[in-house]
Amino acid sequence: MRRAVGTTLVALAAIVVASPAHAHLVETGFGAFYDGIAHFAVSLADMLIVIALALFAGLRGTRAARHAMFALPAAWLVGGALGALWPTASIWPVSTTLSLALTGALVALDAKLSDASVTAFVIVAGALYGFVNGATMTPGGAGGLALLGAVCAIFFVNTILAAEVTVLPVGWPRIAVRVAGSWIAATGMLMLGWLARPTLA
C-alpha cells in the first residue's frame, strides 16, 4: 500500500513538473474561451494549486471561502495579464512549487490562520500562478479571452470545492481533506527535490 502511494506521488510530481514543457494552448475547436478552460483542465500544476487553495479556504470557514471565491480568480487574472505582458519572463518553478507545497502543508495542518491572512495567501499564490500562466499561455497563441476562460474555470472549481468543504461535518470527512492536503504537500516536496536534482548532480 505504502509503495503504491509512493509510486503515485512520484508519478504525480513528475507530471506536474513536466507540465510547463508543453505549455502550448489546448485547441478545443470551440474558440479561445473554451481553449482557456481546457488549458486549465489539463494543466495539472494549475489544477492542484486551485484545489489546494480551495480546500485551505474551505477549512477556514464560510467567510474565508467567500473571500477566496473572489480573491483567487481576480489575483489570477491580474497576474495572468502581467504575465502576458512579459511572456519571456522566467516561469519561476521553485516559487510556484514552494507555494504548492506550503498550501498543501497548511491544509494538512488545518492551520488556524485569520480570514485576512487566508485571503492574502490566496492572492499571493493566485497572482504567482496567474503570472506564470499568462507568461506561458501567450507564446502558445492565447489571448485575453483564453485567460478569461481559464479564470472562469478557476472561479468555478474554487467556489464549488471551497463551498462543499465548509459544510463537511467534523470527523473523518475533514480528516480526508487534510490527508488530501498532505498528498499535495508531498507532491510539492517531491517536485522541489526533482527541481534540485540537476544542481546536485
Partner: peptide, 11 residues
C-alpha cells in the same frame, strides 16, 4: 452547482 455554492457560502 454554482447556485448551491453561493447558498452554502452565504453570499
Amino acid at each position: 452547482l454554482l447556485e448551491r455554492s453561493f447558498r452554502l457560502l452565504e453570499c
